[in-house]
Design a protein around this nucleic acid. Structure first.
Lengths: 110, 110
DNA sequence: CAGCATCCGTCACGATACTG
DNA sequence: CAGTATCGTGACGGATGCTG
C-alpha cells in the first residue's frame, strides 16, 4: 500500500530523493556522468578535455566521490606512463534512464 | 534517430537535465515540493511548520523562485488577516512521477 | 499572517603551482 | 600522465528584527 508521496518525512535525511541529489549534485558530476555515458570508459586527461571548464581540483574530487558512492569505477594500468581508466558502474547505468526522463521533461517544459 | 546520450553538449547550458536540477536544486525546493504533493494546497505558515528547520528567508525566496519557474501557484485571499495559499502547478505535478522514480532508485541503491 | 531587509558565516568552487 | 596542495573568493544559506 505505497502512498502517493515523494518524501514521507519532509525534511528527514532518509528521503531517497535527497540522497540521489546529493551524489549527483554539484556543478560537475552529471557532466562527468554524461561524458562517460556517451563515450564509454575514459582516461583522466580525456575527461578533462571533454568537460570544458573543469579543473584538476574539481575533476579529481568529483571522481573520488563518485567512486566512493559506487557510480564510477577506477581501473589503473601500471604501464609507463601510468594509465587510468574511469567507467560507469552498473549502478550508475541503471540510473541513467531516469535522468534521461528528467532531461526530456526539462526540454519540454523549460 | 535519437542518440542514447544524456547531454549532447557536455558542459553546455542547453542541457535539459541541468535546467531541471537548477529549478529543484538547493536545500529546500524538493522539500517544498514534497510537502505540497503530500498535503495539497498549503498556507505559508503551514509550510513553515511542516518543513522542519526552514527559515522565513529561505521559504519566501524558494516559493518566489518556484513561482517564477512555473512550479508553484500563489493564490491570495484578501481577507483579514491575509490568507495565501500555495499549490503545485500541473507542470510540477507532471514532474513528480519522475522524481518518484529517482527516489525509489535512491532507496534501492543507496 | 505573510512576508522583507540586513548582516554574517560557511563551504563549494576556482586559480595556481607542484609531485610520483 | 594523473593527480595533490594551498590559498582565495563569492554565492548560498542562516539569524535576527521589522513591516503591511
Amino acid at each position: 500500500m505505497t502512498k502517493d508521496v515523494i518524501c514521507e518525512t519532509v525534511g528527514g535525511d532518509g528521503c531517497g530523493l535527497k540522497k540521489v541529489l546529493d551524489i549527483i549534485g554539484g556543478k560537475w558530476k552529471i557532466l562527468i556522468l554524461c561524458a562517460m555515458k556517451n563515450q564509454g570508459p575514459m582516461r583522466y586527461g580525456q575527461l578533462r578535455k571533454t568537460i570544458v571548464g573543469i579543473t584538476n581540483t574539481m575533476l579529481a574530487q568529483s571522481l573520488k566521490e563518485m567512486n566512493k558512492d559506487g557510480l564510477v569505477q577506477r581501473k589503473q594500468y601500471d604501464e609507463m606512463p601510468v594509465r587510468v581508466e574511469y567507467s560507469l558502474t552498473p549502478k550508475a547505468e541503471s540510473m541513467v534512464p531516469i535522468l534521461m526522463e528528467l532531461k526530456e521533461w526539462g526540454e519540454a517544459n523549460l
